[in-house]
């Protein structure tokens, strides 16, 4: 369960402070699939980053499985991310110097998993890229890169998965394939999943849509799916 309580985030830009998020509060039960939507600059990506523990809020708290992650030290946060969080970025963010296989195996290796490569191969198979294992990111198409990123996000079987505009940089056909894989893997793993998206169709495939506007929750509703 994820509990967000009075979350706020302000940033200094030059001489004035800009409020990115303001008093955001919500809960997400386990295994729920949630979409966060809203116009550009509404604070979606910042919210997702804060949920994933990639940044710290200015105020408020985030509790994931009973742990207030805003109170964690840097090293505790790292370990929390490693064990509980998977993340898919809009621009894939694969490490350019690693092959597809190595990129997928990376979080497992960080966990000291001796079977990292074996599991990474399985995941690449699951995203239908087993023939691209030894390719570097530059040798892969955008869709392929994002599939590698999806495989990487699921490699440690994280209980929570965040995806930031996972199809934002892809054409619709490729985006569809990636979403298909993302949902399938999520189903297999039974993770809680939070997506940030512009894509209404994608949002409608989730169980719940939280809409942000100017850093505040505008609407929060369950979908019919």
């Amino acid at each position: 369960m994820i509990a967000v309580d009075h979350l706020g985030m302000q940033l200094q830009a030059g001489s004035h402070r800009v409020t990115i998020l303001d008093d955001v509060t919500f809960q997400i039960p386990q295994k729920q699939i949630v979409a966060i939507v809203g116009p550009s600059g509404s604070g979606k990506s910042t919210l997702l980053g804060l949920l994933a523990g990639l940044d710290r809020p200015t105020h408020g708290s985030i509790t994931i499985h009973g742990t207030d992650i805003t109170a964690l030290s840097e090293s505790e946060m790292v370990s929390h991310r490693r064990q509980h969080i998977g993340y898919v970025f809009q621009s894939f963010h694969l490490i350019p110097t690693l092959t597809a296989l190595e990129n997928v195996a990376l979080p497992l290796e960080l966990n000291g998993d001796p079977g990292a490569m074996g599991r990474a191969k399985e995941l690449l198979q699951a995203v239908e890229l087993d023939d691209r294992q030894q390719h570097y990111p530059v040798q892969l198409s955008g869709g392929e890169q994002q599939r590698v990123a999806v495989a990487r996000a699921f490699s440690t079987k994280p209980p929570v998965l965040f995806a930031d505009e996972p199809t934002g940089n892809l054409d619709s056909a490729t985006g569809e394939l990636v979403i298909h894989l993302l949902f399938r893997l999520n189903q297999d793993h039974g993770s809680t999943m939070v997506l940030v998206t512009h894509d209404t169709a994608l949002a409608n495939r989730t169980q719940r849509v939280i809409s942000l506007r100017d850093g505040r929750i505008h609407t929060d509703s369950m979908t019919e799916s």
Partner: peptide, 16 residues
Amino acid sequence: MTSIAILKTVGADTGV
């Protein structure tokens, strides 16, 4: 910088 940030997001600590 980006690679380092990615490593951090996937759970590598600064020491590593």
